[in-house]
Design a protein around this nucleic acid. Sequence first.
DNA 1: CTATTCTTATTACCTAGTAATAATAAATAG
DNA 2: CTATTTATTATTACTAGGTAATAAGAATAG
Lengths: 192, 192
Amino acid sequence: MVVLKRNRQKLERQQAMVSQLQENPFLTDEELAELLFVSVPTVRLDRLELGIPELRVRTKDVAEQFYGQIRSLGAGELIGDILELDVGKRGITVLEVKKDMVFSKTKILRGHYLFAQANSLAVALINADVVLTGSASVRYLTPVFLKDKVVAHAEIVGQKGKSFVIKVNSKVGSEEVLRGRFTVVAKEMNDL
Amino acid sequence: MVVLKRNRQKLERQQAMVSQLQENPFLTDEELAELLFVSVPTVRLDRLELGIPELRVRTKDVAEQFYGQIRSLGAGELIGDILELDVGKRGITVLEVKKDMVFSKTKILRGHYLFAQANSLAVALINADVVLTGSASVRYLTPVFLKDKVVAHAEIVGQKGKSFVIKVNSKVGSEEVLRGRFTVVAKEMNDL
DNA sequence: CTATTCTTATTACCTAGTAATAATAAATAG
DNA sequence: CTATTTATTATTACTAGGTAATAAGAATAG
């Protein structure tokens, strides 16, 4: 059976389709059909074989990923969920590592999420209208993986006027994953 | 004319609709109708009056925003757009501050975006399968505001084996907003 | 009571599909 | 060359979530 030769065209076309959609997931079947020089039904069959959902689902998936992510890294004030918060003293948050937070190849958590958890917790400890990070120094000790739960402990360790120094320590289980030191500054709304 | 009383219900409903959609932009007209205790045509008229597009357009808008931007913060490898990239040496990215990246009260950019831009640029300079941040030290010099364009310059300044030191300098116009030093480590896929 | 505004209902149409069936074309085995 | 398989295309009926336009009913102001 030299079924390979036959399938080659089809396979190539399907691969082409996948890479087209990777570049631009917002292509309709009609547009794909034109790009791949086949009919619309063929595109549909190919999608079916490859398990690729229709445009609207793809669009929605992308949009929802956005909402699951930016909501946590942007819209909200705090990255992670509060376990304890003693404003002016210390606080603990926990961050569960979701799949859109990791490198797809390695499933390792992207550094800035860990940073963001620590930084936002540091900021949350200060009781003022506006709190800005002045400087930060962090060490990433061990990689954090998908589905890990990162517990961040933060404590105010110093103060000079409106400037605070906060130490943050993040762990997964008993393993230390990040150690950081943040200097944050409390500002009044009008002295900007 | 006590036309106000009449309009009040309508106005309140429209405001309610807006806030519903702010919370969850993925609501159909039918779902909105149920939530607001009116008919579907009324919802449509309200949307028309308020210039709110249909679900699919809203979804697509969100998804495209994701592609223009968030691709950048999570899914993509790099936060910001590349202006120059000389792998192994130096690179420049620019990040435009959008409204979901700032504190709503002050319109000041959240610190971790600035960090993420710098960090991801540092990582991008290294040519290896897997690059992890080992430590980072940053100083936030001046606040960055909505619509600012942050230009980050990064340069490899040292190397010991698979460990690299990268200096990053971010500016808005001629003003320096962040200065940072990152140590990143290149790993092979199998030594994890 | 009447004019006006709101709300609802109804209808025809649209896009981007699903799902299923049938017809046709192409390739290969024997 | 022919039979059979596989791939492709066409066609039809159906769906969600709308647009756009028109008509009819309800509420209220004056």
